[in-house]
Amino acid sequence: MATIRKRGFGQWQAQVRRKGFPTESATFETKIEAEAWASNTESSMVRGVYRVLKIAERTTLCQLITRFKNEYAQFHYKKRADGKEAWKFQAKHLEEKLGEKSVADLDQRLIAEYRDERLKVVSGTTVRKELYLLSKILGFAEMECGINLPNGNPVLKIRKPAESKSRDRRLTDAEWSEFERECRKSRNADLWPLVALARETCMRQGELLSMQWEDIDWKRKFVMLRDTKNGEARSVPLSPIAIQTLQKIPRSLGGKVFKVDRLTLLHAFHGARKRAEIDDFTFHDIRHEGISRLAERGDFSVLDMAAVSGHKTLTMLSRYTHLSSEKLANRLETAK
């Protein structure tokens, strides 16, 4: 049977005694929480899952994340071109805020508080990714570790923040001219070729940095990307400008096209941007510029653009359709 006692200001102790089990007790801030714990503990004893619940109470989120890393992540998550793993950045924040909590303590209220606090610092998209990872880790606990979650998966029971508004930063012709000039003047010889290829091919930064010479088919004018964000290989067509850019790069017998690492590239990129006096412009915005130019041509369908950019869903490309529609409308006007 369960006994509930008040222990000082704002503390309630629940104690459960049942034949065949050791006496269990826990302290809570409210009487309702104490009664709920006692009821769940007694119920788990009756249903024969008490020992499984004890594992959840003894396992902290930090410990669970360590198991997730060693038993799952290293086999299923690919490293980025710079050798880092994106999920670790998300896990770091989960560990800082929730790491000392036991798995059994994780409930909707706690996760909702985490969500709201993180939204004060980072974007909704970032918080969504962190919550998705937490949900995956808790699913791993249930499916792979046999840890019963007394509150179920709380991430599935809370409201997720909305996706952040997509960036729409594009340089004017004058800005592009000045930016190109500064990139070409950079001491980093790889900067302008990378910028030019990003604009011509719509490749992501990591895809460019992992590109291999042996994967370029000069005759058929495409490059086969084997290390992509989506984890699936894809071929990217090479425009005449892209081919000319690649042909000017000093070529080794094999290996990567670009030897520069991600941090060095970003340092050179931001240096050129500042010298050109351009604000609010990221390397990823160059990919957006490339896709926008494809849409503006008017002869590329959304499926064509998806084949080039590597988007797995057409939803991500929907914001570019108005550009192609405007171009087609102009063509219809001139065809009269």
Rank of each mutant, 00 (worst) to 15 (best):
M1N: 13
I4A: 13
G8L: 05
Q11F: 11
W12V: 08
W12N: 11
A14G: 12
Q15T: 07
V16S: 06
K19P: 10
G20W: 04
G20K: 05
F21L: 10
P22R: 08
T23F: 10
T23V: 08
E24F: 01
E24R: 09
A26Y: 13
T27G: 03
T27R: 11
K31A: 03
A38G: 05
S39Q: 13
T41M: 07
V46S: 13
G48R: 10
V49Q: 08
V52A: 09
K54F: 07
I55M: 10
T59F: 06
T60L: 03
T60A: 10
L61Y: 04
L64N: 02
I65W: 15
T66C: 01
R67G: 02
R67N: 01
K69L: 04
N70R: 02
N70Q: 06
Y72D: 14
Y72S: 04
K78S: 02
F89R: 03
F89V: 04
K92H: 12
E95K: 03
E95C: 05
E95R: 13
L98S: 00
E100A: 14
V103P: 11
A104P: 05
L106I: 07
R109P: 06
R115V: 02
R118L: 02
T125D: 12
V127R: 02
L131V: 11
I137K: 15
L138M: 10
G139N: 08
G139P: 11
C145L: 07
G146W: 04
V155K: 15
L156I: 12
I158H: 15
P161I: 08
R167F: 05
T172K: 04
A174M: 08
E175L: 06
E178N: 08
F179D: 03
E180S: 03
R184Q: 11
R184P: 13
R187P: 03
D190V: 04
L194W: 01
A198M: 00
R199G: 00
T201A: 00
C202M: 14
M203Y: 02
Q205Y: 02
E207R: 14
L209E: 09
M211W: 13
Q212A: 04
W213I: 08
E214R: 02
I216E: 02
D217G: 06
R220P: 00
M224P: 05
M224L: 12
P237T: 02
P237G: 01
S239T: 14
I241T: 11
T245R: 15
G254D: 03
K259C: 04
D261W: 05
R262T: 03
T264W: 09
T264V: 05
L266W: 15
L266Q: 06
F269C: 03
G271R: 10
R275C: 05
E277R: 09
I278A: 15
F281W: 09
F283E: 00
H288Q: 13
I291G: 09
S292E: 07
R297Y: 05
G298I: 05
D299E: 07
D299T: 13
F300S: 14
L303Y: 13
D304E: 13
M305I: 09
L314A: 14
T315W: 15
L317S: 00
S318D: 13
S324R: 15
S325A: 09
E326C: 14
K327M: 11
L328E: 12
A329D: 10
N330D: 02
K336T: 11
